[in-house]
């Protein structure tokens, strides 16, 4: 599961998840956070929504129903990904096979975490999001296509533009490692540091 390279088009079954304020505690409950790796988080993703207390699948939950069990795209409610900074939420969603969430706006840390892991988060108007929710819920084959470079979403009769900032789009398309890329600017960082007075250089007492 090292699928960092984003294709320019993401295509797949879209599942409607219309709840507002879905937080990262719900996306990845704390009992799955006791780990020092990024792996093995697919089962934990949306665990309390997908499974009941005895570990049985909840048949009423959208991702447990056909055809949405194979969803690659989620159409989500407002403020998806709010709360804790835990990147485990994004790792888990990717491991579950989710490649994009379409919403009206996302919590900031979640948005940045998504970019680092090739999870696309196209932002659309409330009107378009609601149309996509209806489409994902009712279409015979709720297949949605997201073209990253032209910033267009296509779903049946629906064709709509989406917002995505340039840096995120570039990062997704290139599958770039931001840390390595930033080190190309090492001399600029050194220059900045050398301009700092001694009282601006934090040194923590051990």
């Amino acid at each position: 599961m090292k699928e960092k390279h984003m294709k320019k088009t993401i295509k797949g079954i879209a599942a409607p998840l219309s709840l507002a304020n879905v937080d990262t505690d719900v996306i990845m409950p704390k009992r799955f956070l006791i780990t020092i790796t990024r792996e093995g988080l697919a089962d934990g993703t949306f665990a309390d929504l997908r499974f009941n207390n005895s570990g049985q699948k909840r048949p009423e939950f959208i991702l447990n129903k056909s055809p949405w069990a194979n969803a690659k795209i989620l159409i989500v409610g407002d403020n998806f990904g709010c709360g804790s900074s835990r990147e485990h939420a994004v790792w888990g969603m990717r491991q579950l096979g989710i490649k994009a969430c379409i919403g009206t706006g996302f919590a900031g840390i979640f948005y940045d975490n998504a970019r680092k892991n090739g999870l696309a988060l196209p932002i659309v108007s409330h009107e378009i999001r609601d149309k996509l929710l209806q489409f994902a819920k009712n279409a015979n084959s709720p297949e949605v296509s997201i073209e990253i470079d032209t910033q267009t979403i296509t779903a049946g009769e629906i064709s709509a533009p989406f917002e995505m900032d340039e840096a995120t789009r570039t990062s997704l398309i290139q599958g770039r490692d931001d840390t390595l890329d930033t080190l190309k600017y090492a001399s600029a960082i050194h220059d900045f540091e050398s301009s700092l007075s001694d009282q601006m250089r934090v040194s923590v007492i051990k």
Binding site: E87, I109, D178, T179, T182, I189
Partner: peptide
């Protein structure tokens, strides 16, 4: 910040 950005700060002392 998320964990990938923690890595970024460790290795570069900066953030995008």
């Amino acid at each position: 910040i998320g964990t990938s950005e923690v890595e970024h700060v460790l290795a570069t002392q900066t953030l995008r």
